[in-house]
Design a binder for these strands. Structure first.
Lengths: 214, 214
DNA sequence: AGCTGTAACTTAACACTGTTAACTTAACGG
DNA sequence: CCGTTAAGTTAACAGTGTTAAGTTACAGCT
């Protein structure tokens, strides 16, 4: 006995080596900029070895994404949050923005790239909807808190719709920043200013009594 | 005489043929999905012929983008607009959304893809800032109208910052729709609902007297 | 009329890419 | 000790963007 387990351990170690190498290259060079051959070179394997562990390039990077989604949810969870529901949403937005700024290539692959539709497997299904590991679920939870506390205008009762709006607003700032920040056609204001402005405007537009928003 | 002109005309016709073929393929298959060889095949030229007219693939599709930017500005110009500055901004947002929905591949290349920085040439400089051909300039103009009419909160005086916020908000809805609409993790509300919600929320957040916003 | 230069275009090739099929090699289980 | 299996390799395929060198046709000049 024990052999099988050692084998499995070794295999998952190689798998992790591939993922780590891919992540490092991917973060600096982006999805298109990294080839399977370069990933293989980095870990001193032949390019085809990767295909023992991942069906194709898409799947390899999809796995990295899953890790990043989880990391994002972790960040949400760990950053201490205000008890005020609106302030909590503001801080969630700030945390999300920081994530996008710190890992632009991950962000691009996670939220700005079209992927072929991917049926969720059983592992995914465990994560989905759990605020501790699913970032979107966390946002929805925070939104629901604000609804329950009566802080939004009374016609705004759909937590899903509000979450999607809040997400889109912050995503708009980050993704335009990633794709267009060096575009000379626009005299861009500093990112931080744009992010704060966006959060201020959308939260004001949502709350029942705009005067009370600091 | 006249020969030179005929030659020039022929050349610009071939150039247009390339652009038309590229556009057609690009619209349906996206940037990565189209190869120079396929574009060439479509017009029955050798692949290298394209390089007589365009330095590389990037430049070819950049030219298409410029055309699309211009078309967007045209749409803004031609769609009849309310005289109310806030309603005008709302309609501008709607028009922009329609554009993104109708031409998702163009939209992706124009606003969701990182391009190597591109020094504006003299032709670009003519367009830049002219609301009739520069869509961003149009937005800025519409925002300035709202500021001048005293419709925004008094601390909001930076037309550039407000424009960037409004753009980002609508862009957020469209780009998430393009990249993530078939993602089973999110129970997406209909796009139209999300777009209307976003415009409602951001405009409410901007105006001086939220009650007056219909 | 015949030579020359040039612009438009093609052929062939280079250095890549993702991916597959067929092979080797090493190690465990019976 | 032998057979099976899994991990990893080599070689190849079909495709990519792009370039260097070559062809061809034709306007302009002597």
């Amino acid at each position: 006995m024990g052999v099988k387990e050692r084998r499995e351990r070794e295999k998952s170690e190689t798998r992790d080596k591939i993922l780590d190498a891919a992540r490092e290259l991917f973060v600096t060079e982006g999805y298109e900029g990294v080839s399977m051959r370069r990933v293989a070179e980095k870990i001193e394997y032949s390019p085809t070895a990767i295909y023992v562990y991942f069906a194709d390039k898409q799947e390899l990077f999809h796995e990295l994404c899953q890790q990043d989604y989880a990391r994002l949810a972790e960040v949400f969870q760990s950053s201490e949050m205000s008890t005020d529901p609106i302030e909590r949403l503001r801080q969630t937005g700030r945390t999300y923005t920081e994530f996008g700024v710190r890992y632009p290539n991950h962000y691009k692959f996670m939220f700005m790239t079209t992927h072929p539709p991917h049926e969720p497997d059983e592992e995914d299904r465990e994560v989905m909807g759990n605020p501790e590991v699913d970032a979107y679920a966390f946002l929805k939870w925070a939104v629901q808190q604000a609804i329950d506390a009566g802080r939004f205008r009374e016609e705004l009762q759909d937590a899903e719709l509000i979450s999607q709006t809040l997400w889109a607003s912050v995503h708009g700032v980050i993704s335009l920043n990633i794709a267009k920040c060096s575009d000379p056609w626009v005299d861009w204001r500093p990112l931080e200013q744009r992010a704060e402005m966006m959060l201020d405007v959308t939260l004001r537009g949502l709350v029942r009594n705009p005067g009370e928003v600091k």
